[in-house]
Design a protein around this nucleic acid. Structure first.
Lengths: 106, 106
DNA sequence: ACGCAATACATCGTAACACGAAGTATACGG
DNA sequence: CCGTATACTTCGTGTTACGATGTATTGCGT
């Protein structure tokens, strides 16, 4: 998928990936992979950005003798997902603009 | 609309704006405005990029004693629009991933 | 015991890109 | 003659996705 198109989707996708239950970096990448692939460096950048925007909180916990960072979505993060649904409607209107046939063309 | 979300849409929108008949900068901006707003500096950057990618051709013509650059879409540009329809399907699947309710939540 | 893949997170430099600001120049209405 | 619309251009900046690279631990096969 085109990298430019991904840009607006990635943040929301990461939020969606932790929406139902806390998750951590490696798992988020795996969960998102079937829908949208992203590299580790990208993910951790996004997670930091979302934390800064207070759309998620971080908690460090031990798992199998190793430290993991668990991410939990906040109300603000949930709101971001809700906002995305509105943006989707705008995108739909743009989609129709792009794909509309010339009048009298068919 | 979120700037990141716009990024993947702008190129295709500009192509769509000149698809049915040749157009020029100022008019393209006006035609797109109801769907997606963009500044002049952005538009001319995009037009240059699309020309480089051979998705449109440029022709300078006089109009009312003033020079105008008219842009015409090429086959490659039309193909880009067709490709966008496939990308849209990918986006739809991402949209469903983002907005799906937790199983057993309702 | 040793190596190697998988797990897990972090940092750095780069290139693409949208935008505001500012500039240039002409047409036209009041 | 002045302001607004038209029309295109250039420059600097901030955001961002990514590859490359590094660090460290677990667990499995042999």
């Amino acid at each position: 998928m085109d990298i430019q198109l991904k840009r607006g989707l990635l943040d929301v996708c990461v939020l969606a990936a932790i929406k139902d239950s806390d998750s951590y970096g490696y798992k988020i990448i795996k969960d998102m992979k079937p829908y949208i692939a992203l590299s580790e460096s990208t993910l951790y950048t996004i997670l930091k950005r979302l934390e800064l925007a207070q759309m998620l909180t971080v908690r460090t916990a031990e798992h199998g003798g190793r430290l993991r960072k668990y991410y939990r979505i906040t109300d603000r993060g949930l709101q971001r997902i809700a906002d995305f649904q509105n943006e989707w409607n705008e995108m739909l209107s743009i989609y129709r603009f792009v794909t509309k046939e010339d009048a009298g063309n068919e």
